[in-house]
Computed example of a mutant assay.
Amino acid sequence: MNYKSIILSLSLLLFSVAVFAQEKKGNLEIVKSPMIDLLQERRVYFENNPVEVRPVDKENGTRSTVLGFRVQIYSGSSRNEAYATQARFQKQYKDIATYVSYTQPNYRVKVGDFRSRSEAQAFMREVKNDYPMVFLFTEQVYVYY
């Protein structure tokens, strides 16, 4: 193949790219569900009017499980350290449940039964100074009705 045919082929290729790459003008139509506006209005309403949180009666309530969040405050191979961490946490936060689990080779101490991620993250920020290795897990948590 000679240089003239290569140059001619490249010229045709560039010309065709330039022709197809021209800007096209048109109309854009946005179609959305009316539920989006309703959800946005509700979110603004609930941000301005927070729901009153009632204390839960764990003794007389019904316990169930839902998908929620727990905060891990310890993970390591020492059983004694895991239970010591659990005891120290229970002294600081008497009303928050703690759970120790063992998956070889590590013990894990997780705390709380949080229904929302934001609630769990706020608690993580609160305990991060005392428990620097905090981590958030999604799992089945206990709730009372």
Rank of each mutant, 00 (worst) to 15 (best):
A84W: 00
S64M: 13
F135E: 08
R42N: 12
V17Q: 12
P50C: 04
Y93T: 13
R63K: 13
V66A: 08
Q22P: 02
Y144Q: 04
S5D: 03
Q140N: 15
Y142F: 13
R54S: 03
F46N: 09
I7E: 06
L10E: 03
D95K: 15
T65A: 14
R125A: 11
V19P: 01
I6Q: 10
Y74R: 09
E41C: 02
D113I: 01
S9I: 10
Q72W: 13
K110C: 10
Y83E: 11
N60R: 11
V56A: 06
S75R: 12
M35D: 09
M124F: 07
V17A: 11
K58D: 06
Y142C: 05
T98R: 14
T103I: 14
V141A: 02
L38N: 00
L13D: 07
P55I: 04
V141D: 06
I7W: 06
D95S: 14
F137T: 11
K58S: 09
E81P: 00
R88Q: 04
I96D: 15
T85C: 03
F123V: 00
E126G: 08
L136H: 11
V143H: 09
R108G: 02
R88S: 06
I7R: 09
P50M: 01
G61I: 02
E59T: 11
V17P: 03
E41Y: 05
Y83R: 07
Q92V: 11
E119Q: 12
I73T: 14
Y83K: 06
P55C: 02
D95M: 15
Q72T: 13
V134G: 01
R88Y: 07
K91V: 07
T85V: 07
P34F: 00
N80R: 06
Q90C: 02
Y74K: 03
L39Y: 07
Y83T: 08
M1T: 05
S11H: 00
R115D: 08
S75L: 05
A120T: 08
F135V: 07
Q86G: 00
G26F: 11
P105H: 10
A18S: 10
R117V: 05
N129E: 07
K94T: 14
F15W: 05
F137H: 15
D95C: 07
K91R: 14
Y102G: 01
L28H: 04
